[in-house]
Design a protein around this nucleic acid. Sequence first.
RNA 1: GGAAGCGUGGCCGAGCGGUUUAAGGCACCGGUCUUGAAAACCGGCGAUGGGCAACCAUCCGUGAGUUCGAAUCUCACCGCUUCCGCCA
Length: 432
Amino acid sequence: MLDIQLLRNHLAAVVARLETRGATLETTSFLALETERKDLQTRTQDLQARRNSLSKQIGQLKARGEDSTGAMQEVAGLGDALKHSEERLAVVLEEINAFVATVPNLPHESVPIGTSDAGNVEVKRWGNPRSFDFAAQDHVDIGAALGGLDLDVAVKISGARFSVMKGGVARMHRALAQFMLDTHTGEHGYTEVYAPYLVNAKSMFCTGQLPKFEEDLFGVLRDGADKLYLIPTAEVPVTNIVRDQILGAEALPLKFVCHTPCFRSEAGSYGRDTRGMIRQHQFDKVELVRIERPEDSWAALKELTAHAEAILELLDLPYRRMALCTGDMGFSSAKTYDLEVWLPAQNAYREISSCSNFEAFQARRMQARFRGDKGKPELVHTLNGSGLAVGRTLVAVLENYQQADGSVIVPQALRPYMGGLERLAPASESRL
RNA sequence: GGAAGCGUGGCCGAGCGGUUUAAGGCACCGGUCUUGAAAACCGGCGAUGGGCAACCAUCCGUGAGUUCGAAUCUCACCGCUUCCGCCA
């Protein structure tokens, strides 16, 4: 959420900045609401002040045993006007809040201007895509040959966009998550977190998924209880850890890593990436979350992105880093780097991580603050990034490490997590 | 699932219809003292919003209600604790 003061005092500048990301603000209705709010607020407060002082007089008169009917009559006359004014003010404030809650974050000044992913800028490239002396297969065929990936049976069990893994492939999927967690906790200083996969609407609001993107979520209804939502990313429960808190300055930064399944309805992406495990309703992800002092958040974004890149480098997977343009960034983000891994079968780089600085946007929704040097509570900055999407990392390993005979070499870094296994081979699959 | 109790500022905790302008303590900040620190003493110290200065309003889990006036009384909901039952 943007600071309401920014909208009140610098509306034109905010509008211009948001236009770069394709967002249009309904300024006319906002300004009308603000005018009414200002008027109602002063009127309400004047009436309240009058009521309070009269009520105090009544108390004092009664304590002295004097007559208080005059004051009683005057305050009775206030009643209707005050009630009316308070109720209308509550409605207007609610409408203003609802409006502000739908306004996306301002892009940082360093974000390239653009209207779609075509405007994203490559800022780094690492590794050399391998050249194959045979026809490279995609992960669906590789996985099927290994007997380790069955998308048809997943359709039977759940429907499209789910997968069933078995044997060595399932084990590699698990190994990848363990490897990522160990690297981030052991090498990068993150604290491992286990968090709920079902969260309430408030949590979804605070990180920015609600109210605008309900259609992207899976909801769970229960008799007589509030609706819960399946998390689309661990960002939601982990960032909400600091909701409604005033942290000591010495507590910062907080660095969390959390491995969870993620659930996305993928509404609006019909027909995209229908083949294989690239776009699923359920996928695992290891997420990095950081709570920072405002002055440290930009350095933290660089560091967090490098931590995600370290996983790709340890797995020796070629990738590039993209600075997302204004038109391609998520609702809550001030700046985002996407990491894209090389997929031989697609002959393309595909997103495998997204690292963002939200500045105070989520913190303001959450009322997540710390007590800084000035002694006053200040909003923290929040960041997160995938470190990495586990399913897509598995896809990348299968495709980049495939051999002519249909086997897949296990990356060195993963072998300790797979009992020293060096290769996934079709013939050996049943014994795993 | 049953019973009882409890939700007050960063933390602990008093207050149970009108000198509450929310006591007191801890923590924190400033000062005195000290070579320095600690202790002691003195002073300051909640959040949000409106004017942006004085000041005013709102906030005691959330929401309704009673009242001239609610942290305080009523109702509903949420959460926590303890005991019993059930359970991985």
